[in-house]
């Protein structure tokens, strides 16, 4: 079985986010980058699914600065890696690069995370699937392969669903699909020599243009209510905030 895992390189979950003074660009200096947590779940599942034989390729659309994250994925157990040498412009751009690669290099399963920690679009996996004309199961909490079909649990409004899809398909991994794997020493050593190929992006029409960033307004100072006044909480919220 051949599995492609799409990985993004995102700011560490504890990182403080800063922008240039004109608010146009994200400032990467001083920020630790990590493998997007959901992509790590997807990768762990892919490694387990191919334990009996197969191949796990990871793909990232990014510049050379993402290579430590790609090496981490190789240390966790990916067989080889591809980097499409471009700044990810938007989800359509990223999905188009992944779909173009898959058209020339077919896979049985394409795994993504349900959402990236920077863009938060939850759009890339479905776009890849649409570009390839195959199903996509987003918010997948489990994934098991039974011959030429796969069975997945996924989150839906107010519940869950069990779905069945023919291979090939795309899935967006959510919590629960696999445990996070900690790379061992052998993995880390072998990651240094595993193949990482760099390819150039395909041309994609530009449909969106990033303009600027902003930060949420700081909350006003917390108002402490004494435990003895706990009974008044809802009345206070109603009077002061009018949200209930």
């Amino acid at each position: 079985m051949k599995i492609l895992v799409c990985i993004s390189n995102v700011p560490d979950t504890t990182a403080k986010i800063n922008f240039t003074p004109d608010n146009k660009e994200f400032v990467a200096a001083g920020v630790t980058f990590i493998l997007n947590p959901y992509d790590e779940i997807a990768l762990s599942r892919a490694v387990d699914l191919t334990a009996g034989g197969g191949q796990v390729t990871v793909i990232n659309i990014g510049d050379a600065a993402t290579e430590p994250t790609i090496r981490k994925a190789l240390a966790i157990g990916a067989t080889d890696a591809v980097r499409v040498n471009a700044q990810p412009r938007d989800s359509f751009f990223v999905a188009s690069q992944i779909a173009a690669y898959v058209k020339n290099n077919p896979f049985d399963i394409i795994l993504c995370g349900r959402e990236s920690a920077d863009h938060n679009g939850s759009a890339v996996p479905t776009m890849v699937a649409e570009l390839l004309g195959i199903p996509c199961v987003l918010f997948a909490k489990s994934l098991n392969v039974e011959g030429s079909t796969a069975v997945l649990d996924c989150e839906i409004e107010g519940g869950k669903e069990v779905v069945e899809v023919p291979l090939p398909f795309v899935a967006g991994a959510s919590e629960g699909m696999a445990e996070w794997k900690i790379p061992n020493m052998r993995g880390i050593m072998s990651a240094r020599t595993k193949p990482l190929s760099v390819i150039e992006p395909v041309e994609v029409p530009q449909l969106t243009r990033h303009q600027s960033y902003d930060k949420p307004a700081a909350r006003s100072a917390v108002k402490m209510i004494s435990a003895d006044d706990a009974e008044k909480l809802f009345q206070i919220i109603r009077e002061e905030k009018k949200v209930i």
Binding site: T208, H210, Y213, P216
Partner: peptide, 20 residues
């Protein structure tokens, strides 16, 4: 046509122009 959307997991907003 410029939209305001969440980014960086609730730590920021981004403004994106749709040019299609």
């Amino acid at each position: 046509f410029v939209v305001k959307k969440n980014a960086y997991s609730g730590k920021a907003y981004s403004f994106v122009e749709l040019i299609s």
